[in-house]
């Protein structure tokens, strides 16, 4: 065995590249951590950017990419934190220009509006609690959706593969029945608006229950399951038939071939699409207000109905969705890159 003898020696350029990428990552993290201290975070962010701009080769590494994005986040957080501290940090003897600035700000219509919408009567709680509910519903709905989607995808692709192989009889009849059932599920769910499904589940099926979160999780989970099923079925079908035949020819049965050979490969190819489904679902849960669930959008809407000002609460809600979606989209893009790299 020539195990160790001809391993390529780590090239210095490669080591250097990795070191630079690590440095970018560290500066990125520091820029976020230090954003409480005015301007300190910005210094680290700029350091990270300089390194990122100067080292073309290091850019290809994931760590550098993460570091750069953290630096961008750091700058935003830093600017906001600095502004807040400038305006509100308690000082014994503030310089006169600062006192003027602060009293002007407190008298500005922006601040009055802001205070009225978010601070008085702790109205920000509508936003925070709503955000929590949005995440809770989305998280469990995604789990339910994936569970349903996997089952439906397996039934449908099993039926496609096994209908020729199976001898007639009870098993085949059962599979035929479940396949039809799944077909009906997909048609109905994808053929009707999610809001209508939500209202039917709340007002018709669960008319006696008042657990709105449970209803929302069920509605969005069942809805998402239909889309996830098609994503996963596409993933299973995208796997070369030869993989299936190789598994079977070794002596694995249908179920084990799926479990050991096909599903792991299919899952890898559909992971980004599944993550995207999560992102879509975050936005879709915004219609939960139809059954009176106080999630993020409803929270903003309640504030609007109390203060009679629409701009602040609705824009705030929009910004929060946007930040969340951008963040998760970025994570998905990292994931995609990672999967692509691991294929070679």
């Amino acid at each position: 065995m020539s195990d160790q003898s001809n391993l390529p020696v780590q090239e210095p350029a490669l080591v250097n590249k990795a070191k630079k990428a690590n440095l970018i990552l560290v500066f990125g993290i520091l820029s976020v951590l230090f954003s409480i201290i005015p301007l300190a975070g910005i210094v680290f962010a700029i350091l990270a950017f300089c390194l990122f701009a100067k080292n073309r080769s290091a850019r290809t590494l994931m760590k550098a990419e993460v570091g750069k994005t953290l630096a961008i986040i750091g700058i935003f957080v830093n600017i906001i934190a600095s502004a807040i501290e400038l305006l509100f940090y308690p000082l014994n003897n503030p310089p006169s220009w600062l006192s003027v600035l602060r009293s002007d700000f407190l008298a500005s219509s922006f601040w009055i509006d802001f205070e009225n919408n978010f601070i008085s009567e702790k109205r920000y709680l509508y936003i925070f609690k709503g955000l929590g509910v949005t995440f809770e519903v989305t998280f469990f709905a995604v789990l339910l959706g994936i569970a349903l989607g996997v089952i439906v995808a397996l039934v449908r692709s099993s039926y496609d593969t096994l209908k020729e192989e199976m001898r007639g009889g009870f098993g085949k009849g059962l599979l035929w029945f479940f396949n039809k059932l799944c077909g009906v599920y997909l048609t109905v769910i994808r053929g009707t608006p999610v809001v209508v499904q939500l209202m039917i589940i709340y007002f018709v099926i669960f008319a006696s229950s008042n657990n709105k979160i449970l209803v929302a999780v069920l509605a969005f989970g069942i809805n998402s399951g239909a889309y996830v099923a098609e994503i996963i079925r596409g993933g299973i079908m995208s796997i070369d038939r030869g993989q299936f035949e190789a598994g079977r020819s070794l002596g694995f049965g249908y179920v084990r071939t799926m479990a050991f050979i096909i599903i792991p490969q299919a899952f890898k190819t559909v992971l980004p699409a599944l993550a995207n489904e999560f992102i879509v679902l975050i936005k879709e849960t915004s219609v939960s207000g139809y059954v009176g669930l106080q999630e993020l959008t409803k929270g903003g809407d309640i504030i609007r109905s109390r203060t009679y000002s629409a701009f602040m609460p609705l824009i705030a809600v929009a910004i929060i969705y946007l930040v969340i979606v951008m963040f998760f989209s970025w994570l998905v893009s990292l994931l995609e890159r990672r999967l692509k790299n691991s294929e070679r």
């Binding site: 035949e245 190789a246 050979i261 490969q265 890898k268």
Partner: peptide, 11 residues
């Protein structure tokens, strides 16, 4: 069985 396109399990 040995196939024309190998069919090794890539994962």
């Amino acid at each position: 069985m040995v196939f024309q396109h190998f069919n090794l399990f890539p994962h």
